[in-house]
Nucleic acid binder design. Structure first.
Lengths: 342, 342
DNA sequence: AATTAGCACTCTAAGGGTGGGAGTGCTGGA
DNA sequence: TCCAGCACTCCCACCCTTAGAGTGCTAATT
């Protein structure tokens, strides 16, 4: 279907277009890459590539632009990523090792990734579905209000304030905390409901409403239906990268603000990344209208393959520098994994 | 220096310009506002206003545009804000009462405000300088790592992981937690250092390194030099509002991303808002080059006047609808105050 | 003294025509 | 299979022109 040289041509077109952002013609192509043949020959290859749907021309008598399918082919052809320079790696370690808690680690990672790639970076918090309970703390806030603080083995700290129907009894509270921790600590969060199942029965009948309220709060906070959290950085890079704002940037900003689109996309990509370390979605592959000119590169961290605890990624125009972006994402994902497992 | 009618003219110019985003001329002005005089008269007033620096023309033979000074005059002339409609107020209460913790309250508030004003909204977390300690919890994470969780009376939950030089002793840990809480609970955070001063002396010499590490972590986390946190929403509105992207939007996005600029600005404005309930900075008054075409409206919440615990605000182009924006900010600030004091 | 009609003037933004240039596809020969 | 040459297409940048909106000034009016 496509000769070896045609693949070379496609590769060259992608590279040049990423550089120049302008349709690339046969003449310039042979000048910049030593393909060893004349422009006319390239034109034939281009015609073939266009027939196969890998490239397109904005209008007759313009150069060619890669299509989503073309980028896909290009990405799939990449066999190995060249590792980051030592300077870059030093930047990562230096920047990340100063972090004091999970929020801080994620915040720094995402900023770093945004700066490296000059695009929008995003990181998921460790999924609650893949975390276990470390500790539950019950802190009275007033006579009838209680703050439930939940700490997971992945370092997440979640909180919730519960309004109690009656006054709090600190002795009962202490016992409740001890029992919840005894029953729940170390458990995977999705299984927490069953772990805490018969908890009420241990308490006196008049104490049970409190017990029910608290367990309900705990399960609500880390339950199956809680949405994942994400952090972003580099939205300003969006504006820098492109000139055609209204059409491309605005919808992307909107999608980012809603977050839901992105969270689902990352969840989808997690499955892919389980086998390949990195997942790439190009243009329409994001299956979101508003991201139809956007590509996403994501990789799991905090566990290899299917054990990954969450995703980091980068989001940019379909005409991004895939090799470098992929290398950066992979590097940050690996460093994140290392730091979190320490 | 300026007659009553000239003020009317200025007001009319501001209103029309905010609506149309186009320089407003004398003819249109008299048509839309019944000023009772002819265009020629208005032109004289306009010339006077221009001499005084309240308006300017983009080029000869164009209409007039308000200057920062003009907007300032306009805003200072506003004597009373018309309250929100009942529908809007209902939206606020309905949306905010579902919140389960501080993060949630702030998140919802800022989104609501962004949606109301169709601009960028921002809210500070309650300042640690103005919060008191509610509770400190020490959760062992491994044999040598400890998570310090700090809860303030304003509902903030801060955390930090501490690496210990030696193995943790749970009995000592329990005592340390009890003593920190006994000494610190209820204290204003800025005074926490002195409150915990002689803490080490109570412990055995070999336990003291641990005590020092933990108190250091506590003080580092809520100390004077910790930067304030802010949350934003509505950045996508930026792109919607304006057409001249590269010049106005990009620098604003960059400034927002850095956050530092904005945090300092809000801190500055807090002092103003202490006496006037709302503070407004127009264009260059933000004293940031990148925000030179941006205005900020902010108000304190969680305490009246100088007791305010933090700021909420809205950020938009200098040609924003000041009355409505100010009304929205004030409303959200008041609701926030009410909810947090409950 | 303030207001206003009239008028000449200025400047922009939009429309329309033009030419250069880049790029293509095709054909016929090596 | 490759490639030189060529006719063709189409965009884009440029210039020119014009319509329109708005101004400032002057002289007349209230």
């Amino acid at each position: 279907m496509s000769s070896e040289r045609q693949l070379d041509v496609l590769r060259a077109i992608v590279q040049d277009y990423v550089r120049s952002r302008e349709p690339v013609g046969s003449r310039n192509l042979v000048e910049r890459h030593n393909l060893g043949v004349s422009p006319a020959t390239i034109r034939n290859d281009m015609a073939a590539l266009e027939d196969s749907g890998y490239i397109a021309q904005p209008h007759t008598s313009a150069g060619r632009i890669p299509t989503d399918k073309g980028y896909r082919m290009f990405v799939d052809q990449i066999s190995s990523l060249k590792p980051l320079s030592t300077a870059e790696r030093r930047a990562i370690t230096g920047f990340l090792e100063g972090a004091v808690d999970l929020d801080d680690v994620l915040e720094r990672s995402v900023r770093l990734l945004a700066q490296f790639t000059q695009q929008v970076a995003v990181v998921q918090y460790p999924s609650l579905r893949r975390s276990a309970l470390r500790h539950v703390e019950l802190v009275p806030i007033s006579t009838t209000r209680l703050m439930v603080v939940i700490i997971t083995d992945t370092g997440r700290v979640e909180q919730r304030v519960v309004e109690m129907p009656e006054e709090l009894d600190s002795a009962v509270l202490g016992e409740l905390r001890a029992r919840i921790n005894a029953l729940g600590a170390g458990r995977e969060l999705p299984g927490l409901r069953t772990a805490l199942d018969g908890l009420e029965d241990v308490f006196e009948p008049h104490e049970r409403t409190m017990v029910t309220e608290v367990t309900k709060a705990v399960l609500d906070t880390v339950g199956e239906d809680v949405e994942e959290r994400i952090v972003m950085a580099g939205t300003a890079n969006l504006a820098r990268s492109d000139t055609d704002f209204t059409r491309t940037i605005t919808p992307v900003l909107e999608a980012l603000e809603e977050q839901v689109v992105l969270m689902r996309l990352l969840a989808d990509m997690a499955e892919e990344a389980a086998t390949t370390e990195l997942a790439v979605r190009i243009g329409h592959e994001t299956s979101s209208e508003r991201l139809s000119e956007t590509s996403v590169v994501a990789g799991g961290y905090g566990g290899t393959g299917a054990d990954a605890i969450a995703q980091v990624g980068v989001l940019g125009p379909t005409r991004m520098d895939y090799p470098n972006t992929m290398a950066a994402v992979r590097a940050v994902a690996r460093y994140l994994s290392r730091i979190l497992s320490a």
